[in-house]
């Protein structure tokens, strides 16, 4: 067990294990043999240019897309082999925070959070649901927005509510899809801090998909660089960007010198 900051990473227990993952769309090969491991309690930031298959990777992890080849084990279960209730049971343990937040725009903030809870835990009383919603909103610092509609929230607030909706089911793994995209640097910083707070408070393991190096540096215990359908470099932020690989260097330079 390794203690990093105030969270603990268990490098003997993998929660996601991917080997030889391939995925194509028609003639376009997106993932060409991805190998990846996420350990319990760890955050891994997956970096890569747009269109390199970062989002495809986490959609396969949560069973929204089927792989063409390879093995994807999530919490010990092979995701593409699961169906119906077995897949639902796994999904309750894996949270997914969407790039667009994907809040239900016909529901207010309370209903957005209560909906997954009441649909999955039928025996909860109204008071218990209220308590859970309040706790999740407190965790993201937006308890005052409980009765607002998603359309009345700012981009950063929508991201936070999206994370709160993920947290309400108390997942063991959280997959963040571009958590800081479209946000100003200050709000991005707040979201980065929130991802770390969630990891420490709920002891979650996370995959953070991003092309924002500041986000990767702040949120990732390790960084994985996805280039041309494979992870070309995985390790600490410093070790990955110490690489002499031209593509990695240009990615770094573009982010930090422009």
């Amino acid at each position: 067990m390794i203690k990093e900051g105030s969270h603990q990473i268990n490098r003997e227990e993998s929660v996601i294990s991917i080997t030889g993952l391939e995925k194509s769309f028609d003639e376009l090969e997106v993932l060409k043999g991805v190998d990846f491991t996420l350990y319990r309690g760890e955050n891994v930031a997956v970096l890569g240019k747009s269109g390199t298959g970062k989002s495809v990777l986490i959609k396969i992890i949560v069973g929204l897309l089927k792989p063409d080849a390879g093995e994807v084990l999530v919490l010990g279960r092979q995701v593409d082999k699961l169906k119906g209730r077995e897949l639902d049971a796994l999904r309750l343990r894996v949270g997914f925070s969407f790039q667009s937040s994907a809040l239900y725009d016909s529901m207010d903030v309370y209903q957005n959070l209560a909906f997954p809870l009441t649909m999955n835990k039928k025996n909860l009383t109204k008071a218990e649901v209220d308590h859970e919603v309040k706790e999740a909103l407190d965790a993201v610092g937006l308890a005052s927005k409980i009765n607002e509609m998603p359309s009345d929230l700012s981009g950063g607030q929508r991201k936070r509510i999206g994370i709160a909706r993920t947290l309400i089911l108390k997942p063991e793994i959280i997959l963040y899809d571009e958590p800081t995209s479209g946000l100003d640097p200050v709000t991005s910083g707040e979201i980065n801090d929130l991802i770390r707070e969630v990891q420490e408070r709920y002891n979650t393991s996370s995959v953070v998909i991003t092309h924002d190096l500041t986000c990767a540096k702040h949120t990732g215990d390790r960084v994985a660089m996805l280039l041309e359908g494979r992870f070309s470099k995985v390790g600490s932020f410093e070790s990955v960007f110490a690489s002499e690989d031209e593509q990695i260097k240009s990615f770094y330079n573009y982010n930090f010198t422009t």
């Binding site: 929204l64 309750l92 949270g95 997914f96 667009s100 809040l103 649909m119 089911l169």
Partner: peptide, 25 residues
């Protein structure tokens, strides 16, 4: 329009990953 808008803004996928069957709901 309502379901189409939910589809293109990933709200249907959000239901799926929350273990809710969007087709049924």
């Amino acid at each position: 329009a309502e379901i189409g808008s939910m589809k293109v803004t990933e709200q249907i996928e959000a239901m799926e990953v929350s273990a809710i069957n969007p087709f049924k709901y």
